[in-house]
Design a protein around this nucleic acid. Structure first.
Lengths: 119, 119
DNA sequence: TAGCCGTTTCACATGTGCTTCACGCGGGGA
DNA sequence: TCCCCGCGTGAAGCACATGTGAAACGGCTA
């Protein structure tokens, strides 16, 4: 069945998502997310390491077909990145694949420069 | 079994809840709560660190299904916060998760400002 | 009966979320 | 080079959720 996610715990780095409890922990501390933000994060995390199209995310989180030109997913990805960045600055979780969609994956947030250094 | 709470003692910071004795201690001093206030606090404390929906709280404390638009839980959360704040100003116990419900957890009542200081 | 206490309900204040828009930037193709 | 398209980002406007004080109500007791 589709909804057998009771004890489901999605982990990525120091991020822990518990769909059944509507709870997200960063470093063990609860994150304050809106219902939509939470839904989007859950669906992204469930599809970790895979690229998910905006239309697919919209369909499952908003429960409707995405209209052309609708930027809601983009906006909410931005909100999520904000909060995740604040809670866990050392990691990046949501990666853009231009023309395809987003991919969830915990990766160190190193900033590389042309000279090869990290600052 | 569900009701084996005889010697149950719920502790959170300097707050101690003893359901079997209908007693709540703050800094060792008994708190004066009404029956409903006490019931709500017990159920919140039993579910510490988890988000509990208003409907769930109403069901277990009032023993009935919550009607849409009923604000009782909100009002009693407010009453509880009042009394807890008076007794233990340094701690915050009941946290709101907009759209989801309340979460019980003893957390220092620090006020953070944009400049990063605590006043 | 008057008064107290706890509960419920209500109205208003405040806070937060959702959608949409506008602008900017950067890469790729004409 | 210029233009177009996709995406990042901040903000405005409205809707909704929650906080809060007080009135209304009912049972109990002095």
């Amino acid at each position: 069945m589709e909804a057998a996610h009771d004890g489901e715990v999605l982990q990525a780095g120091r991020l822990e998502v518990r769909p059944a409890e509507s709870l997200v922990l960063a470093n063990g501390r609860p994150l304050n997310l809106s219902v939509t933000e939470f839904g989007l994060l859950v669906e992204l995390a469930r599809r970790a390491e895979r690229i998910v199209a905006r239309e697919a995310l919209y369909a499952v989180v908003w429960g409707a077909e995405m209209r052309v030109g609708d930027r809601s997913v983009d906006v909410y990805v931005h909100k999520l990145r904000d909060k995740l960045e604040t809670a866990l600055p050392e990691w990046r979780f949501i990666h853009t694949h231009v023309g395809f969609g987003y991919r969830f994956s915990a990766e160190p947030s190193q900033r590389f420069y042309t000279d090869g250094t990290t600052r």
